[in-house]
Amino acid sequence: MAAESNITNLKGASDEHYASPSLLQLALGRLWRDRLSMIALTLLLLLTVSAYGAPIITQLLGVNPNSIVGPSFLPPGVDGHLLGLDDIGRDHLARLLYAGQISLKIGFLAAFLSLVIGVSLGLATGYFGGIVDDITIWLITTINSIPLFFIILIIAAILSPDDNTLIIVLGFLGWTSTTRLVRGETLSLREREFVISARAIGATRIRIMFAHILPNLISIILINLAIDIGVIILVEAGLSFLGVGVKPPTATWGNMLTNAQTFFTRGPHLVFWPGFMIFLTVLCLYVLGDGLRDAFDPTTVDQ
């Protein structure tokens, strides 16, 4: 009896042991152990939570982003204003947090939009080939031979966009590199045995693309997403800095800098913080992207 239960126990244990984790689980496990990536992720979460929790935080601190509460250019740390006051005497920290909402929203949503376009186009062109592929490749080469920043600059100057328009513009212009990557990967995946066998048992094309090929692209998708969000936050900030992005009174980290640049000798803290927030956010995203790359492809770690 006892022996038997031991055997079943053993069996149970060995089952657990041999239930091999999926690629995603393995990668996430590796990511979890990568201290640098985890710090970056934590910081990102903190930034996001504090930006979107701005109404609560500012209430707790007793400050308000839009009311004038003291003298202009009050240095940081005076009178309970942690980061001081801006050029017309509004609380800088409160404004930074609210501006973060817009900058983060643009980065995340535009990157998501370009990812959706890039992945579906890459899947379709890679899988079907033919004329769709030719047209897409021509489109990509054309778009890539335009100095993209100029085109974005022109479009932004013309539309004088609000945050939502900018999301659409940046999302629709940033998909080319994702499409290329996904297309290349799909081209090689569609010749693999599991796709052939799926086709053999009569799976539909849509099912093969989304249920068989797409899960294999998860690493590319995640890495690209992290990097793209960073790039888009930088581009948005650059546009807003040049005065063609999101316009005041809606504050973003980029257009807070435009303003600050005019009087940066009187209020250096006004120049430092918005840029530092952009830098920190983008840095975390890039570190996370790097961490994801290593987690999904452990062979690169040794290189």
């Binding site: 900030a237 650059g238 800098l257 840029g275 530092f276």
Partner: peptide, 23 residues
């Protein structure tokens, strides 16, 4: 290299001006 890639050029420019410039 990660830091150099993530740093916004306009901010870097302004900070350098603040540090080394006339003021």
């Amino acid at each position: 290299s990660v830091v150099f890639n993530a740093i916004p050029v306009f901010w870097l420019g302004l900070m350098l001006l603040l540090l080394f410039g006339g003021t």
